[in-house]
Amino acid sequence: MRFLFSRLVHGIFLLIGISVLAFLLFALAPGDYVSEIRLNPQISPETLVALRHQYGFDDSIAVRYAHWLGAALHGDFGFSFAYNVPVTRLLGDRVANTLLLTLPATLLAWLVAIPIGVISAAKQNRWEDRAVSLGNTTLLITPDLLISLSFLWFALRTGYFPVGSMTSLGYEEMRWPEKLKDIALHAAIPITVLVLSIVPVLIRHIRATMVETLQSPFVRAARAHGIPRGRLLFRHVFPAALNPLISLLGLSIANLLGAALITEIVMSWPGLGPLLLESVLARDLYVVIGAVLVSTLLLQAGVFISDLLLFASDPRIRTKSAG
């Protein structure tokens, strides 16, 4: 258990460090929420001064951070000037929407990558392997941005898939199976893009690990015992190769978050990415910090889950932490 506990403490320290970093940088930025109102010809300078004061722009950075941190410990991550709601509320919905893309994408990507990677390793250097490697390399070097734009173009041209947002109009009146279908239809293109952006990395790693495991003595022994090929690959070799792959899970989430940002912005999916971009441009202080913190948290959660899995699957780690 000490292993898990130390990971947790580690994560918390990271978060604090990041919040200080983000807050400091942000406080140095010029411009603020009130400046936008200025162009309205119907507002007097006194009003503006009062607004500045009301939003606390005149306090020192340290005071503002102290206030913010104190509140954060009570679960209050500050207030969005632009939306006039607590940051927590704003982020909550957006994180849920981002997860709605990333979780299915992760699952699908692994489901696609495992058989391809395993087969490609089994058929090492034969035409199957070469074909996979060719397709994989092409995907690997194609920027997510380009994949997103091409799919957007495709969706617009064909009209098969709705683009933009998450639900159609009239979503509320639907019964829940229709609702699921509606969301699935909207999510289809972004999820496909995300899957395409992480699958090549997964396949590469799975193939490499499998190739290595296939060369280990126990596989040769098993093969000599005449265990059928398919059963050997998926029941014996793959589980043995699992450990390094579990660590990869955490890493793939990090990749996915980056790809999700671009995809969400290009496809106008109401997730964390568009919110971050919008609040960065609006200098919505607390939302930016919140968004960076939350994405860090998501990433750390991914790492933590893979640690947990590792802990469960690898007796070596368990004994080490017990001792």
Binding site: F77, G92, D93, V95, A96, L100, E172, V294, L297
Partner: peptide, 9 residues
């Protein structure tokens, strides 16, 4: 109505 609420992930 399916409502997804979440607090910090």
């Amino acid at each position: 109505k399916l409502k997804v609420r979440s607090i910090l992930g």
